[in-house]
Design a protein around this nucleic acid. Structure first.
Lengths: 159, 159
DNA sequence: GGATTATATGTAGTTAACTACGTAGATTTG
DNA sequence: CAAATCTACGTAGTTAACTACATATAATCC
């Protein structure tokens, strides 16, 4: 056990990031092992478009919880891969409407069994006494009620 | 509720990263609100040196779970801030031994009450039905027994 | 004890997110 | 209805991690 793991909650951000990185890297390898040319970072966009077939850039950004510049750079990659295409919104010329290409839809069908495997593998990992997915959702709920900063301010003034 | 939050475990890496980012940003603001010139990303190094006062670059990297190039760049910043200093190891000329400066030690003393507040604020956030810190530790334990990739491979062949 | 291998550190370049800023088109308002 | 504001998108530059490669010293092994 190292000092950081022992430092408890203070290093929580570091530990979340480390775990995210570990899982993301294995994700790359799992796609590769199944002969699928896909990067985990594309998942949020593709998955979103699978359920909401036509969205603008900002709508996608909001759905996946990224800033719009980050989303634009993801969309550029996906357009280069010919997994998505875009067209101007006739009703609002500022908007660019994004949708999956046939190739994109076909890839999703190809990925579905792999997603099923990933889902089961991840469920094994997280099916412990304290469920990680639930814990994340609960903490996000707590934050939405009062942020980490606001809580710190309150606790400081009480002291 | 957006598509990603609904996608469940498949977007686990994205959600971990998002939560880490949210907490890190508030961390910056909490230090600032307490008039402390400190960045959360420095925490792992400083905290480690607080408990193990003299370490080499690679030893620190291992303690904090980063690669050594990442560690070197953190150490450069901290040296510029005069929070740490380094000297060659007489016994092994390859090694550079790192330790806190007086300024670094003083800063730690100044930060201790803020760490206490952060600890309490974070405990509030994570003290839910499924404890996030415990969940992380449990998942890391699961991974150490068999990786995400290895589990996916096994589940695939079983199918 | 010289050659090989391993370890410690460092540098360069990449990646994937971010913030800040700019522009074009849509909406609101005095 | 012109001016001001807002919204959508895009670009530039930054950040903080990474991998890959290079070099110097130490340890190991015929």
């Amino acid at each position: 056990m190292n000092v950081i793991d022992e430092s408890g909650i203070l290093a929580i951000s570091t530990r979340l990031q480390r775990l995210a990185e570990t899982l993301r890297k294995d994700g790359v390898l799992i796609y590769k092992a199944n002969n699928i040319d896909f990067e985990p970072k594309w998942f949020p966009v593709i998955y979103t478009l699978h359920f909401k077939p036509v969205l603008s850039v900002v709508e996608i950004a909001n759905e996946i919880g990224y800033t719009h510049p980050s989303t634009i750079s993801l969309l550029k990659e996906l357009e280069k891969e010919k997994l998505i295409r875009s067209k101007k919104d006739k009703a609002d010329e500022r908007k660019r409407l994004i949708q999956l290409t046939t190739k994109g839809q076909a890839l999703i069908e190809q990925m579905k069994p792999v997603w099923e495997i990933m889902k089961n593998a991840a469920a094994e990992l997280t099916n412990t006494q304290n469920n990680l997915m639930k814990a994340i959702a609960e903490v996000e709920e707590q934050i939405s009620q009062q942020s980490f900063l606001a809580r710190a301010q309150r606790l400081k003034s009480v002291k």
